[in-house]
Design a protein around this nucleic acid. Structure first.
Lengths: 403, 403
DNA sequence: AAAACTTTTTAAATTTTTTAAAAAGAAGTA
DNA sequence: TACTTCTTTTTAAAAAATTTAAAAAGTTTT
């Protein structure tokens, strides 16, 4: 039944996608985006208007001629649930078909290493009961989290492992809503591509500056996941001969010198050794504190961030040599102090990159701030409009019958 | 005129391509490859048979049912010219529509740093006059060479620069055959994908073990070129703090430790210092000599290759983290001693890679040997069958009219 | 108010795919 | 060996989808 009602939505998923990503478009825009002819596009639009999914939205400007009709998705026909997890918490929010947040953003805290799937599902159920949106109107859940994620298989090899089932299966069975799983950095890259500064750039590297240093790659306008969904492990490229043991088990990973975790450790060591710094005034020093003090101008804090950024730059130099991207986007939680990173990164690039290559690569600081991952999680569901979502809906319905 | 005669060939370029790459296929195979229905495929095939491009080639086996007809391209309707350049020479050969070499492979020697476009064109003309194939039957030239190549622009930023024109324009104007330019390593990757061990693998890294260490990347079944055609600069990723100046102007590039040039330098230094090695018996030590002696078992030579290979492995560890490829192919001139490279590379990978990732990546040694680049050059022309070749043919015809 | 330019709509033509039936071969069975 | 059954390919006809081209309708500029 559900599957039937939204048949049209999923059959014309490409059209729906571009409307979701662009809010309002003319028939010509849509035709351009989907690669179908304008007559055909208009025919489908009119069907979708009749079904109640699309509405005309006045006229767009014309460069001298009949003004074209604008079209947009009707916001409240369906909803998406985005769950953005990091090492210490998960944020949840309901998003409508115009990419607006229509519930409170609720945060659940935990240590991801200890988090059980059962507990997580309880959080999820709790959120669904209190978010104010009827569950049957939620088309899918976009779950994005750190770790080695195989999107196809629906498994996170690092966290939230469930025995006997894939993580996605487990949640779907308990919540009865289709679930799509992806890596946090991939989600951020998707958000930047669809709604952020990476829009319309064909080859972009999106850095997720957070506890680690995540990477989402957009190659030829598509998220690149590698052969098993494990591509983009930027954090653990072996770059240093420093002997520092990384939590991945190897030595000398980029992360051992450049992540906020490494920065925090160095800060604590510095304070212990009597460094003159405003950080000494804090009882507990963490990444947030260092960022705060760096913004205020604390010399030691700035130096710490700069050193980390320089090391990130060393890694980026390699990335530029290999990928020749048009742009590198600084996103994720750490990007709120994007400018602090920029100079040392540029410095490292200048020292380690062939000029021919750097000339073509631009650095951009994200404007999505902390919302990037949540936006990306909703977009992840939209990306799967079409056959994949249809299959999941059918499977869930079938298992409901069986019970 | 020319353009008209081969209209059908270019209109159905996808079908032609898969026949070129596979020699014989059934209609079902082709339908599968092109994504068109079987009736449509058969219709087009019959047209092409009428035009004289395609022939039926007996029957294929069936697992219990009517045997399907085999189809293949008629070999001598047209030809492709492949020019494979390295630092010291260019090889040229004419290839027919079944990927057979139908002329002698002719080598012209030079120092690429000193080579002038004028000289090169003279070599090309000389070859064309003596190859035994009428020029009008040659559909295109695939020119593949080292350096920073922008395929779209038709320019090599490093070698064979022509003032006032792009390199491709210059050659086309003098030879009146469409020219397609690409990087040597990209050509090798293309050859491995279409005719070699990388066939049917979705994400592969193809290493060109030669004077430098080139890289061609196949991502999602497509050659990846980056934003300006400069992707895959594996040779110059900044990996070492060794202070060694690279010919690119930077310090510590992978090439400074891992290329055959670096190996040769180390060998000479070792001999000077009185190392016990059969290399000492040679008047002039070069890469070929070291490879030869390594095969024979000279301990010093093996050690030299092993050390270089280990460093290549360090670079590959980074590549695996970033790209999560299904396979890494060792190709290029150096791959004839592929097994010599394998153990030390594996060693480096084991030390520097997260096991989760290495589990999914297989190492394969090429079987195309020294022919890879030539095959790739011809394939480069075939890849451009369709609009691009059509446009070039039209432009050349037009300029012929103008004169 | 006419001319120039745009976009939308409609209708016709074309292409492509689907469906169904016929043909051809292989394997099992009596 | 002859016959049946099962597969798979090929052919032909019907249906669906898409593209193309031209007409219609509206805006802006002159």
């Amino acid at each position: 039944m559900t599957a039937n009602r939204i048949e049209h939505l999923l059959n014309h998923s490409n059209l729906i996608k571009c409307l979701y990503y662009n809010e309002v478009l003319t028939s010509a825009d849509i035709s351009n985006y989907t690669g179908k002819s304008i007559p055909h596009t208009i025919k489908v639009l009119n069907e979708l208007i009749k079904e109640g999914y699309v509405a005309e939205k006045g006229f767009a400007n014309s460069s001298g001629g009949r003004k074209p009709l604008n079209y947009s998705l009707i916001a409240d026909t369906h909803y998406l649930l985005s769950v953005a997890m990091n090492q210490f918490s998960a944020q949840m929010v309901v998003v409508d078909m115009n990419n607006n947040f229509v519930s409170n953003v609720v945060r659940y805290e935990f240590d991801i290493h200890l988090l059980q799937a059962e507990t997580f599902v309880a959080h999820l159920k709790n959120f669904l009961e209190n978010c104010g949106i009827p569950k049957t109107n939620i088309l899918g859940i976009g779950l994005t989290m750190p770790g080695f994620v195989d999107t196809e298989a629906g498994v996170n090899y690092t966290f939230l492992k469930v025995s006997g089932h894939t993580l996605v299966e487990y949640i779907q069975q308990n919540i009865s809503i289709p679930v799509f799983l992806d890596n946090d950095s991939t989600a951020i890259a998707l958000a930047e591509q669809k709604f952020g500064v990476a829009a319309h750039i064909k080859n972009v590297m999106v850095l997720n500056l957070g506890w680690g240093i995540g990477l989402g790659m957009i190659l030829n306008d598509k998220i690149f996941r590698g052969n098993n969904g494990l591509a983009g492990e930027f954090s653990h490229i072996p770059l240093f001969k420093n002997g520092k043991l990384c939590n991945c088990g190897k030595h000398g990973c980029l992360e051992t010198e450049a992540s906020l975790i490494a920065v925090t450790a160095t800060a604590k060591e510095g304070i212990r050794q009597g460094q003159i710094t405003s950080l000494a005034n804090y009882k507990e020093v963490d990444a947030d504190v260092i960022i705060t003090e760096a913004i205020k101008g604390d010399v030691f804090s700035v130096k710490l961030i700069s050193e980390a950024a320089y090391h990130v730059g060393e890694g980026l130099a390699i990335l530029i040599h290999l990928m020749n991207p048009a742009a590198i986007v600084l996103s994720g939680k750490g990007s709120v102090v994007g400018k602090l990173w920029l100079a040392p990164i540029q410095q490292a690039i200048n020292e380690h990159c062939i000029p021919m290559l750097t000339n073509y690569t631009e650095f951009i600081i994200s404007n999505l701030n902390t919302k990037a991952q949540l936006i990306g999680g909703a977009a992840l569901v939209v990306e799967n409009f079409g056959k994949k979502l249809e299959d999941k809906l059918a499977a869930i319905e079938e298992s409901a019958y069986a019970n």
